[in-house]
Design a protein around this nucleic acid. Structure first.
Lengths: 178, 178
DNA sequence: ATTTCTTATGCAACTAGTTGCAGAGGATCA
DNA sequence: TGATCCTCTGCAACTAGTTGCATAAGAAAT
């Protein structure tokens, strides 16, 4: 049940309409918790009904922007969730599964995929690095920002790990194809 | 659509009944693609109906084991899937989301979670290391095994990354709590 | 002024995965 | 010999996320 909390966080950072949230979920928060506009609209309705957020007054009409803001109950809910006990989800990665499959049916066509993934991860890492340079220049570190930077560094670490591993994997396959 | 392919892979490695598969999905394959017995039974039925696997002949009865084996069509399907183009799924991690939430509502209770996750990842890494030592002793490397080892090393790399990051995160929070 | 594009919200139907429970058969034990 | 426990298969109902489409308001184009 993370989506409602992702939305509460985003709304606390800045009250927004559904579409604005959707756009923000395409960057920043979306880097580690993506969501489509459908999920967001549905969840906004639920959160409003549950009394955790409210639509900022205005004429309610279809095709009109509707801004939401977080109510005290929503903030409390979120603070509680931060401290909650939640086990990390086990890895769930189709590429690893495909390697395992390749071990029984052969590696035909696999290297192209490894190469492609390598390129994608390199690009993602470059994007993160650019954000880091832009938003977190050395030395400057106030409260909220320090945590945002920390989250970004997790993304950077993970991408770097994939890049290393994919490079190793390609070398291994090239050295002695099955 | 990875579950059917995970099952085909497992069945090619060894024909099995539903429950045997479930047990194997608690280890090895399950390290990067977990599944409950429910998912497995449902998927076995679909795969059988689709002509990709078949039940090894025997008396069909409730409460009785039913062994499945992969048919040629299933093997072809799997080989095709290995070469398929599939983008990596973006990261989706609730702990990172919680850090982001903590940046707005405060970090109360968070360090305990970071510590707990650190311990869990350390344990997972130790498990992987034990498997590596047992199944892939230095020097020995035949075809199928090399790929299995590669997959395991991905798991090891990811766990190590989390451990590094969590250690850094705790230090950062301890140094100057919000 | 009417068509057309963009912005914004939303319904309906789908796939994937989870949770809770039920029931048949065999093994064990008193 | 029947109570009870374990193994194995499975149904039903649920939550989460995805995809395709509809519809309304307002801006811009001709």
């Amino acid at each position: 049940m993370s989506l409602p909390h992702a939305i509460l966080t985003a709304l606390l950072e800045r009250p927004s309409s559904g579409l604005e949230l959707t756009r923000r979920f395409d960057k920043s928060i979306g880097f580690f918790w993506s969501a489509t506009h459908q999920q967001i609209y549905r969840e906004l309705a639920k959160l409003e009904q549950g009394g955790l957020i409210r639509a900022v007054p205005g004429p309610p009409a279809r095709g009109q922007k509707k801004e939401y803001e977080v109510l005290p109950a929503g903030r409390e809910e979120l603070a509680g969730w931060v401290a909650e006990r939640q086990d990390p989800k086990p890895v769930r990665d189709a590429l690893l599964l495909r390697l395992r499959a390749a071990a029984v049916v052969g590696t035909a066509g696999l290297d192209a995929e490894l190469e492609r993934h390598l390129e994608l991860h390199r690009r993602q890492l470059a994007d993160y690095a650019a954000i880091e340079e832009r938003d977190f220049p050395a030395g400057k570190a106030d409260g909220e920002n320090r945590l945002h930077h920390l989250v970004l560094r997790a993304g950077i670490g993970l991408e770097a790990t994939w890049i290393d591993w994919l490079t190793e994997a390609r070398a291994e396959l090239a050295a002695d194809p099955l």
